[in-house]
Structure formats: C-alpha cells, structure tokens
Design a protein around this nucleic acid. Structure first.
Lengths: 209, 209
DNA sequence: TTCTACTGACTTACTAGTCAGTCAGCAAGT
DNA sequence: ACTTGCTGACTGACTAGTAAGTCAGTAGAA
C-alpha cells in the first residue's frame, strides 16, 4: 500500500492495521523467554500496552498466535537465494560459501533464532507448522545446496562424498552454534560467522595434511 | 550394593529404593512428549502406577524432578572416553573418529536425546542445570576433542585449521541430525551414524578435488 | 500390633478464553 | 467551525478448567 493511501486512513484504522504485527512481535519476545506453554497472553498484552481481550480480536487463540509468529518470521527468503545460485557463474566452492553464508545470516537473526528454538521445542505439538516449514524452507534449501554440490562434482571441482546425500549437514555448524549460544552464551560465546568460516574451510580442504 | 544385600531387604524397602528411578524414567517419557511446562505430574504417576502424592515423597517439586532426570541421564561418561584418548596410540584421524563416534553413540540414545532436546528448550529456566552440564560434559568434551586435534597437528597429521578454536563443531552434525529427526523424522529420517560418517570423511579429506 | 509407604480428595493458584460495557474518533448535520 | 450521535476497537472482570502441591487417612508388610 502506498504511503499516500495510508496517510488518508484515520488514526483508528491505522492502529487496527498495525495491531497484528505489534502483537506478533511482543509474542515472539514472550515466547522466546517463557516457551509456548509457559507464556501468559496477559504478558504479551502488557508488552504491547493493550488488554488481553484485544489479542482475541486479531487471533483466534494462543496456538494461532504462535503459528502467526512462525509464518511471519520465516518468510520466503529461500527463493531469492535459489535464484542467485541459478545465475551464479564462478567456481562451485565460492557459490557454496555464498549460499551457506546467506542462510547463516538469516538463521542468526534474533527473531529467526527464536523461531528456530521454538520449533525445536514445540514442533511436535504443531505438525502442520513443521510441514509448512519443511516445504517452505527446508525442502528448497536442501535442493539448492544439493544442486551446488552436484554442480561442483559435475565440473570436477568436488570429490564425490557422502555430503551429496546429506547436503543439509552443511548447515549443522550454524544450527549448533545458535543452540550453543542460546545455552552457554553466558560462559563462552561462539561467533557463528567465524565458526562457519572454520567449518567451511575444513569442509572444503580437509583437516588432514 | 551387592545382590545379596538387596535380597535381604523386605519387599517395601526394595520398592522404596526402586521408586526414584521408576519415577525419573516415567518423567523422562512424559517430559519428552509434552515438554516441561506442558507435562502433568499425574501423567507421570499414572505411568509408574502410583499416585501423584507419592512423587512428592521422593522429589521436592516438579523442578527438582526435572533436574534429577537430567543428572540421572547425563552421568559422567566423558571421563572414560578421555581415559581412552590418553592411552590411544594410533594415528590421530583414527582417534578422532573413535571419540566422535563414542560421543555420537551416547547422544543418539533415546533418553539422552530427550535430555538434549529438553535442555535446549528449557535450559534458560534452569541456569544451574546448564552450568552443571557445561562443567560435567561440555567442558571435558571440548578439552578432549581439542587435545586430539592438537596432537594431530603436533604430529604433522593435521593442518592448522580454524577447527582448533572450535573443536565442539565436530559434534555439530550429530546435534543437527538429532534435531532433524526430532522435527522432520516423519518426512525424511537421517541416520545419525551415516551422517556423521559422511561428515567425518569430508572433514578429514575435504570436499575439493 | 505397629509402622510407614502410599493414597486421593482437597486447597490454592493460575490462565485461556468470553462478553457486556466503555469511550475515542469519526462523519454528518447545522 | 462546532456540535452530536453513532460505531467499533478496546477493556477487564468474570467463568471454566487445569494442575501443582498438601495431608489426614489407609492398607499391608514387618
């Protein structure tokens, strides 16, 4: 919607339009802190500065609010990355680095990080959400990474390794470091970018002398 | 305690002694299914075949029961593995493989897997538990893995890589595949052993041709 | 008979979800 | 420009239901 059209709207209409996002943002913060079952919708409402009842004007119930949080945050960035991969013309290792770097940048954003951790802990209770996430993000992501590895093999840049069968394992250090920081951040913080760099270097050229 | 001494005990004394473990096992199953906040102690009691009140004869409250679950499951297997590493005499890559394989075998056991996932989701609520886990498992584990990498470098078997700084990243594919199976097991199951094998092969010799 | 592990109904506390009532903003009439 | 009545976004006290934690009483082993 153009800014001009938004300007025309009255105060209340504008507020009404902004509410869902405000609520989702607050809910993400509370869910991140207390988990799904442990969160109180009153806390969410307080954070927005509205009453609990108002939440129910915009979301059917607590579960739907949670689903909205996931859908809102996840978005559909994978397609863009896939497009980039398709038009990339350099060496396969460079492409691999770039793709992994992009996914990693996304995964380590606070909101996304929250969703990742919530999905891990609450996923079993929301199978449709897991399916959604799988088809929207994981599936295309694996396809993209697998394609790059295959391309490298075809062009004689990569060896044939077991990684062709588990392309998602390329992302494992990012996931592990997100979890690491979530749990042990107080003790020893890992820089996911640096960990990923180390991982990729080793991955590409091996540990052995 | 020797079996003979156990034999001497009366039925009730034996039962009393066995209770805590029974309760912890049941609690692990229920916590795994419903999460900490979502679990009902009545469900735990039902699973053991006792009443809810009995749980409170053995554990102060729900939190203490959860902590007992973690402490019971985690144990202290790390020391044994460290001992093995110290006496190992073959090539560093073989030692690395063996250590990672051992940790992986532990992490993929159902009870441990449950604890891992529960720690990820509930860890922030139980900081002392995280500290306990870090000092008991993570710290020694990192030290052990780091030592093996260093030994490989010293002996001229390994290159100097960023992995020396993040030895825990060696375990990331195991952690990632545990989470993967937890979330997407219904769709595409990953065999953690196979994923780890692929990861280690790539790790050691690199992807590049 | 005594002792004690165990019971389960009860109390207490909490929260998801509801709904009758409120009042700020808007627009139409003057 | 000013008043005014209406609208609907919002409120918050309330209901209904749930679950943690308690304790007087019970049953069965010793």
């Amino acid at each position: 919607m153009p800014a001009a059209a938004k300007q025309k709207k009255g105060v209340r209409a504008a507020q009404k339009e902004a509410r869902p996002k405000e609520i989702v943002e607050a809910a993400l913060a509370i869910f991140a802190r207390d988990g799904f079952a442990g969160s109180r919708l009153e806390d969410v409402a307080d954070r927005v500065g509205i009453s609990k009842g108002t939440i129910y004007l915009y979301f059917e119930n607590k579960e739907e609010l949670f689903k909205a949080c996931v859908r809102e945050t996840v978005g559909s960035h994978v397609k863009e990355t896939m497009k980039m991969a398709a038009t990339f013309d350099g060496p396969a290792p460079d492409l691999l680095r770039e793709i992994v770097r992009r996914i990693s940048a996304r995964l380590t954003k606070p909101a996304y990080r929250t969703i990742l951790l919530l999905l891990i802990s609450e996923g079993q209770r929301f199978p449709e959400l897991v399916t959604f996430y799988h088809s929207e993000i994981i599936g295309p992501g694996i396809e993209g990474l697998g394609g790059v590895i295959q391309r490298g093999v075809d062009r004689g840049e990569f060896r044939e390794t077991g990684l062709s069968k588990f392309p998602m394992m390329l992302m494992s250090p990012v996931i592990a470091s997100v979890i690491w920081n979530h749990l042990f951040g107080g003790n020893v913080e890992i820089d996911p970018a640096e960990a990923l760099q180390a991982h990729l270097d080793t991955m590409l050229d091996g540990l052995r002398k």
